[in-house]
Design a protein around this nucleic acid. Structure first.
Length: 273
DNA sequence: CCAGTATCCTGCAGGC
DNA sequence: TGCCTGCAGGATACTG
């Protein structure tokens, strides 16, 4: 489900609400997620420990604890993290529950099970097979210097390149489509057939689209810091994603959609060349 | 190495 | 109403 802005919003919420209490117990069912979830292994690693300020890398969350070590979390398509009172009924597909000594629980819920929760010993980050391959952080101010040469050496469609986490880490199907629309570039255009000027524009669009989404997430964050404290997903104003058949907000032409690199992609055939 | 496809899983919307 | 199909915001193993 979530892309970088949603993960960053969750990270921010956990920074405000998860640091402090200690873990009293860990429960759940060991089950096949993207990586096998091993609840029994997590118990001695987490019990008695305290969460520190969480970090994010691409769409991964790193929940550091003291003494040192980290929970590595990825939400896949349908993963959710809840930080709630223990009395709140559990949703279906709650795979892991971390009990805290202030009466709350950190829960990992994931119906489709494309997500993961794993343990990283101190220093294991660099060796983790998923983390090690990740490309540049898209919010890095240098993105418009780094992305153009990277994309120019590929002939896959820009849409596919944006989704490749080894090149840029954190963009998903929604924000890839939105960034292409914002920069006026056709999603099927090949990397090596796109000018450096336009690639710089694409990089800037990626940064601004993600940045604005995070700001809106921050706004939502204030709203949902309510009684149950459930993580919510926020509705960003989307200009092309899911709008096929509707008029382009810029030019009025009909938004089209097709599969590119196996993923449905929407674009404006007039604005995007 | 690169590009494209199949695949893991559940839930839901739409067609008949 | 129920059954079936296809599709969903992801990552990766595999193929050519």
């Amino acid at each position: 489900m979530p892309e970088l802005p949603e993960v960053e919003t969750i990270r921010c919420s956990l920074e405000l609400n998860l640091t402090g209490p200690r873990v009293t117990s860990v429960s759940g069912r060991s089950i096949a997620l993207r990586r096998p979830l091993d609840v029994v292994r997590l118990q001695p690693l987490l019990i008695g420990r305290q969460f520190l300020t969480p970090r994010r890398r691409g769409k991964f969350l790193l929940l550091d604890v003291e003494p040192p070590g980290s929970l590595l979390v990825h939400l896949g398509m349908t993963g959710r993290i809840q930080l709630v009172k223990a009395s709140l009924p559990r949703r279906d597909h709650t795979h892991l529950v971390i009990h805290l000594n202030d009466g709350r629980q950190l829960r990992f819920v994931d119906p489709r099970r494309f997500g993961l929760v794993d343990w990283l010993d101190p220093g294991a980050e660099e060796r983790d097979p998923s983390l090690a391959k990740l490309g540049v952080e898209p919010l890095d101010p240098c993105l418009n210097k780094v992305l153009p040469p990277l994309f120019r050496s590929r002939r896959a469609p820009l849409k596919s390149l944006l989704l490749d986490q080894r090149l840029v880490a954190g963009i998903g199907n929604i924000y890839a489509a939105e960034a292409l629309w914002r920069s006026g570039i056709h999603p099927r255009r090949s990397g090596n057939r796109t000018s450096l000027v336009r690639l710089r524009r694409l990089a800037d669009a990626v940064r601004s689209v993600l940045g604005e989404a995070i700001e809106r997430g921050g706004t939502t964050l204030r709203d949902f810091a309510g009684p149950d404290g459930e993580e919510g997903y926020f509705a960003v104003k989307l200009n092309v994603y899911g709008r096929q058949g509707e008029p382009c907000v810029k030019c009025g032409a009909t938004i089209r959609a097709a599969r590119i690199g196996g993923r449905t992609t929407a674009w404006c055939s007039h604005c995007q060349r």
